[in-house]
């Protein structure tokens, strides 16, 4: 047995014996590709929304590229990627809805960017909005449908993830500012970014507050996030880099407008925070315990 597999198996056996069994499938090993996929799909969908609003063609292409990368990351995550085309069980599965959303978005968005004013321009526009909406909404619901992980099984999570998707979209446009120049209303985006960053911070605080009151496993997950195995990434990535720094820079920018490079930095920090928010929330997931705590 290879050494790495041996370690993973020992860890698995240890997990099975633990009262609070951590979920590892969606965050460790190949599971990291799922987090990357979720990150890119939410950033891509958010970028599409703001690119349409601000009429930024570069932003539109970046949105398409981000969603395309998300699709590749999702395929890399799947155990059997060659069967991806079977994911059409829309009636109850949010994963299938996300997959369909991605398949609507990618061709419709490409066609809209290429032929925005043609006779079918409105059709591509509406289809891309439909696909984008699916992409913004599905991720949080995929987690919220996970009854085995009480920390995720909350209606607050889809709202938090949608907030982060919108924020990721603005952030990617800010990163592109040095390349788009004055064609995009930089100050306007900066203020929106500040507002959404504050909203994300409030939503995150609200979510953790709700989860602390929910049940034993959810409380334990909050402990994992704030004091346990996800704490380092949470404080450094999600809170400091992802929220405090962008909010501080945003507040400074209200009085003294930041340069495009400064705003791009805000966007970069925000994107990092978006990734770490998804990573740490996944990492803090704990399966509902079947037995009371005790020694083994």
């Amino acid at each position: 047995m290879p050494r790495q597999a041996d370690t993973a198996y020992t860890e698995f056996l240890s997990d099975l014996g633990a009262t609070f069994r951590p979920q590892r499938q969606w965050v460790e090993g190949r599971g990291l590709y799922l987090i990357i996929g979720h990150f890119f799909s939410s950033v891509g969908a958010g970028t599409w929304l703001f690119s349409l609003w601000l009429d930024s063609r570069l932003g539109m292409w970046m949105a398409i590229a981000a969603v395309g990368l998300s699709g590749l990351a999702h395929l890399r995550f799947l155990g059997r990627p060659s069967r991806f085309w079977m994911m059409f069980r829309l009636r109850t599965s949010w994963i299938a809805r996300g997959f369909v959303g991605m398949n609507i978005f990618l061709p419709a968005a490409c066609l809209y960017v290429l032929f925005p004013t043609g006779p079918l321009g409105w059709v591509w526009f509406i289809l891309s909005i439909v696909g984008m909406t699916f992409l913004i909404v599905y991720k949080g619901n995929v987690y919220a449908a996970s009854k085995g992980v009480p920390f995720w099984n909350s209606p607050v999570l889809p709202i938090l993830y949608a907030t982060y998707a919108i924020r990721g979209g603005i952030a990617l446009l800010l990163v592109a500012l040095p390349f788009t120049g004055a064609s995009v209303a930089a100050e306007q985006i900066g203020i929106i970014e500040l507002w959404v960053a504050v909203s994300a911070a409030v939503m995150l605080g609200f979510y953790l507050g709700v989860m602390r009151q929910t049940n034993l496993a959810a409380r334990r997950s909050v402990v994992e996030l704030t004091r346990g195995r996800a704490a380092g990434a949470f404080y450094l990535g999600t809170v400091c880099v992802g929220l405090l720094v962008p909010i501080a820079l945003g507040v400074v920018g209200v009085g003294n407008p930041l340069s495009h490079v400064g705003l791009a930095l805000v966007g970069l920090f925000s994107l990092a925070g978006d990734f770490f928010a998804k990573y740490t929330i996944a990492k803090a997931g704990i399966y509902a315990p079947l037995m009371p705590a005790g020694t083994i």
Binding site: Y9, Q25, G79, M86, M87, A145
Partner: peptide
Amino acid sequence: TCVGCRACMQACPYAARYYNDEQRG
């Protein structure tokens, strides 16, 4: 038909599902 997305593992409140990631002896 299983695509290996492991959503069922996260949805199961009884942790009764397992991902068979390699043919380990």
